[in-house]
């Protein structure tokens, strides 16, 4: 679902530390791979590759609802906040120096642990949340989607 449209094509940018002006990483704008929004706490991060290099959840932060970017440990606590279906969010990825100018090949799969009721894996996913990229929480887009995006600015 929305396979070709989960990342906005003109949204890939490096981001800088406002104080030092140093480039800390890159960011891009995403939409949810589902037909409904989600309770924010269910967002378990992304599987992300750029030009074949994987950037795990620990390097990711998520910016939504007009708030500063939050890491996924923080997001996990947002049990009463909603990521609305209509809204774009930004994924920030830590990478010293950011990305080089030019086109980058980006792979993306979300892990949002939204469900339609109880499932055999429930207790396991509480104890050991699944690592994004294997399909858990991929919503209605059960594989990694790839995008060739030009770095803006």
């Amino acid at each position: 679902m929305f396979d070709s449209y989960l990342i906005r094509e003109d949204s890939l940018e490096n981001f800088v530390c406002p104080e030092s002006g140093k480039v800390l990483g890159f960011k891009f704008a995403v939409r949810i791979a589902d037909y409904r929004g989600c309770i924010l706490s269910l967002h378990n991060g992304y599987y992300i590759t750029v030009d074949g290099v994987e950037y795990p959840r620990e390097l990711q932060r998520f910016q939504v609802n007009g708030k500063a970017p939050r890491d996924f440990e923080e997001i996990k606590k947002c049990v009463w906040e909603h990521w609305n279906y209509d809204d774009e969010a930004y994924v920030y990825v830590e990478k010293e120096g950011g990305l080089e100018p030019g086109v980058h090949h980006i792979g993306l799969m979300q892990s949002v642990l939204a469900q339609y009721g109880y499932a055999p894996h429930d207790e396991e996913w509480i104890k050991n949340p699944p690592v994004p990229g294997k399909g858990a929480g991929a919503g209605k887009t059960q594989f990694v989607c790839y995008y060739d995006l030009e770095l803006q600015k």
Binding site: I39, S41, L42, V79, A114, Q115, G117, A119, D122, I126
Partner: peptide, 12 residues
């Protein structure tokens, strides 16, 4: 309406 049973993340 839905039933996201992992909403609270610290228990089912």
């Amino acid at each position: 309406v839905y039933l996201d049973v992992l909403q609270f993340r610290d228990h089912v």
